[in-house]
């Protein structure tokens, strides 16, 4: 898949943002006043910023409201609904904390659930796609939720939880990759099944329908970055988990925490880039390219 920056930014940032909101929502002793403002501001900036970024790849962002209508069937629609609901509920919760100094735990729990549900719906947008076997697994949801909770923990300053979660997420990520590497083959789709010509022999593409790359090839076939995948995987793990754990273990302090957060975000973004760049869509079969 084409690793579009807008989608990478979206999933990375909004995941962390909603993760923060979830942690803030269930916090038994949440911050209040300006401190609360600061936390919620960052969380909202990330969640909403991510969502806005996701509209950059829309052909008609001005019609975005229509995307709320098909929640019965569409995970994308559900994501929108959950996101808005989550942001509203947490918004009330946050307002109460910031302006009234009041903690409304039930609202917080509901908001947290909605935030995680949003992350889950995001994951399902990808996880549901049978066309991309690498994504098409419940593990994708686990992965997204793990990233969100980890990032959220990190950014809300839950150091020990964050360290644990970084380790868990690392494990989930590795499992996801290992499964993903076999996924296309396991699904059994090949140019032979794609053309129905398999019983005649091995099928090979001799000529593309059009000589220049088309939308489909640009969107679904991304062979360039894959060569460096293994290296990038290691880099992403180091940035996402290794370095943050190291930094957090050395010293608890703002600078180190900030560096840990930046490293983590960079790591997550790298992982997301790989999430797309390594994903092979069945359309690639038709072009003999995957």
């Amino acid at each position: 898949m084409h690793p579009a920056p807008s989608v990478i930014i979206f999933t990375t940032l909004s995941g962390i943002g909603f993760g923060m909101l979830a942690w803030l929502g269930i916090d038994a002793t949440p911050p209040q006043g300006w401190v609360a403002f600061a936390f919620f501001f960052i969380a909202y900036a990330l969640a909403v910023g991510g969502l806005i970024s996701s509209t950059f790849h829309l052909g008609h962002p001005e019609r975005a409201l229509k995307a709320f209508t098909q929640w019965r069937t569409s995970w994308l629609s559900r994501e929108g609904v959950c996101a808005v609901a989550g942001l509203c509920v947490i918004g009330l919760y946050a307002a109460a904390l910031i302006f009234l100094g009041t903690h409304l735990p039930i609202l917080g729990w509901i908001g947290a659930a909605l935030s995680l549900l949003t992350v889950f719906t995001t994951s399902m947008i990808y996880g549901q796609l049978a066309t991309i076997p690498r994504w098409n697994t419940p593990l994708t949801s686990v992965l997204y939720l793990a990233y969100a909770l980890t990032g959220g923990a990190l950014l809300t300053g839950r150091v020990s939880i964050a360290i644990t979660l970084l380790l868990v997420t690392t494990a989930v990520q590795i499992m996801w990759w290992l499964r993903g590497d076999k996924a296309f083959a396991d699904r059994g789709s090949s140019l032979e099944t794609a053309t129905g010509l398999g019983n005649l022999g091995t099928v090979r593409s001799v000529a593309h329908p059009h000589t220049s790359p088309n939308y489909l090839m640009k969107e679904f076939i991304h062979v360039v970055g894959r060569k460096h995948a293994q290296k990038l995987r290691i880099i992403s793990l180091i940035l996402m988990a290794g370095l943050p754990i190291l930094l957090l273990s050395i010293h608890v302090g703002h600078i180190f925490a900030l560096l840990a957060v930046l490293s983590h975000v960079a790591g997550v973004a790298t992982s997301r880039w790989l999430f797309f760049a390594e994903a092979e869509h069945t359309v690639g079969l038709y072009y003999g390219m995957r």
Partner: peptide, 27 residues
């Protein structure tokens, strides 16, 4: 008229049967 050009349907189609028009931004 309702399409926002999100491209998801093209992702969901195994066959490459949908193309997002680059000028119009609709599927």
């Amino acid at each position: 008229k309702d399409c926002i050009g999100c491209g998801l349907c093209a992702w969901a189609c195994p066959y490459g049967a949908r193309e997002l028009d680059q000028a119009e931004g609709v599927m």
